[in-house]
Design a binder for these strands. Structure first.
Lengths: 206, 206, 206, 206
DNA sequence: TATGAATGAGCATTCATTCAT
DNA sequence: CATGAATGAATGCTCATTCAT
């Protein structure tokens, strides 16, 4: 009797969850392969196979390869967002915001190796005619713009900059330094330390 | 008999001239198409046709498409190099170096629209498994590193930075700011002005 | 408890009724879609969805897509048959039979737009290797053969024709004239009038 | 010496003909397969293989499968046209025109079995969204319209018909009679004889 | 009886590269 | 040195059908 109830419950659960189950398999398989091989070298078929599913199942969840990649990027962006929000405390001075942010970024990179690299694949690689959304870099540039605007308003950052420009510049600086720092096996501490000082000086109020 | 002689003479002449001739046709056709359509959408066949030559001729000059693109990138890099060298004067203070460099870059972009964008195509797009050479961005990062090292040695830049890191950061900052600046139709003057001040402050000796 | 009883009652009721219910839903959904989109562009899934049922339900009623289409065709044929029977009166002279038949056909086309067109889809489209039943056109050809035979026997039609051949010819003539008449926006009256005179003359006894 | 000359000649010839050579291989392979298997069951790959060529070669000659089929249809139409023109003599009376035409059609069907059947594949099978040209049947209907108009003008056919309608009807009649005649193994003579009489009577001037 | 997630064979098409001339 | 016809591996995607629930 009880088992019947349990069974029913299980059944309902399964019914409700079955789709999401295969979706999440596809999702993580896609993430794994996009990270390991990149967008171009990952076929929908590979993703499905990696997930232990048939080819067609992929198209049950995404209309095409591009949509799957975009979903992966969005997921990474949101994870990163949460990570950053957790790292920042309201009322922090600019220097602390910068330190906290850089540390959060490098933490994320350490714990999710390759994910950001993959997620930042140039839009040109993905699009086949369609218009893309704002790339990850540009979004982060805008977030920095916002930080600068607020700091400038609060008097903790130089207010004579065009925040839109400098925000993008900062995003670019962090990205490229990390990218080539990774190449040169520069240790993460040096990276965080140098960039923090660099930005703090550059943004310090007059 | 006579025809044989003529033929030989012609042949020699042609041999001496034709290869370079057709090479340069291929080169500029490739440049044009890579800039207009990007790497992926440009087929060797298109390049040859644009050059007014047969498809096979392409492979007389380049072992494959990738090599052709890399040659295009290298050419752009060298042009840019010359441009930068012309802009800088020995003995300039760091601020002047920065101003001169930024102006040179934006000049180049104005006079060669699209070339840098195309040349900086992500390595992931080009490689199909093989390892690439140092990307353009990394090289420019290194050049900035060198500038910083020299300025630090001369006492016109803060010497407590790791030049390797900061050099890359600067290259990244310029690139991303220009890329998104272009999106936002930001005028080039504001770009150059903001970035110059940003870098000057960040690098100013203690 | 009560609910159980109700449930059971409902279930029985449903059991008895549901199959026909869902079958007729499938039937009319199929008809709608075959008419609107044609055979190739209609998926069993679309039919089930249009019927407000699950995909699998389709296969509860038809072994495959082909069978479903064939059933649609058969239904149309029978409707048409009834329509024709209603139009004809025993003892009519050939001319009257022809007039009545043509009018009945055009009536049906007007009141069921697209149905005949869809139902007459070439056998080649439907079969994937298997052998089809007699196509609609051939059946109608045979019916005309019969009409001719009877008229010839009754002395109201020329008896020197091979009825099998001429029957098919008539069916073909009506079909093609209607098809292209539709293209040219020819009005139905002209069509009926011309074809009636044409057939009457052709079949008139010597 | 001589061989050299011959060689050169051959070489030129080959160069000039190589493309057309593979084109004609593709053409006849396509014709063979379209006739044997129909449009849907014939893959570009099969055509190329049948022609003894690589898959890609197909796309050197036709932009897609549809274009290849349309070319096949057009070729058949032109062959038939020539056949009909050869059969008709200027100044023939309507009855003779009809007899000659029917004989020409059945001749063609005998000597090119299956070709017309394949070529008349319904437009719905071929199109995938694009607009087709006038189908074969409609064209032949128009030709019959013309014949009728001329005969009516010359007083050898009833002039009270709408030639556009009756032309299509005749084309349909011939098609369907032949199609089902073929099924029933009706001998061609009976077909031609019955249809000729049928048409002659129907068209005879008042 | 009803469901709908899962399947995977099958298809049209592309394009970097080769090689006979 | 130059050609361009030929190649075929590779890809993204569809859809009729099955089957566990």
């Amino acid at each position: 009797m009880e088992s019947a109830v349990v069974n029913t419950a299980e059944t309902k659960d399964r019914k409700a969850r079955r789709k999401p189950e295969s979706l999440s398999k596809i999702k993580s398989a896609a993430r794994k392969l996009f990270v390991e091989r990149g967008y171009d070298s990952t076929r929908p078929q590979d993703i499905a196979r990696e997930a232990g599913l048939g080819h067609g199942t992929f198209y049950l969840h995404y209309p095409d390869k591009r949509a799957c990649f975009l979903a992966f990027v969005e997921e990474a962006r949101q994870e990163m967002d949460v990570h950053l929000r957790d790292a920042r405390r309201p009322g922090q001075a600019l220097e602390q915001v910068i330190t906290a942010t850089l540390n959060a970024i490098y933490d994320y990179c350490d714990s999710h190796p390759g994910v950001l690299r993959a997620a930042m694949t140039d839009a040109a690689v993905i699009d086949a005619g369609g218009g893309p959304d704002t790339p990850l870099m540009a979004r982060w540039g805008e977030e920095w713009s916002q930080i600068i605007r607020e700091a400038a308003a609060g008097g903790t950052a130089c207010s004579s900059y065009d925040a839109a420009i400098i925000g993008q510049a900062i995003a670019g600086a962090l990205h490229q330094a990390a990218k080539e720092g990774a190449r040169g096996q520069q240790c993460r501490r040096a990276l965080a330390d140098n960039l923090t000082r660099f930005l703090v000086r550059a943004l310090r109020p007059d």
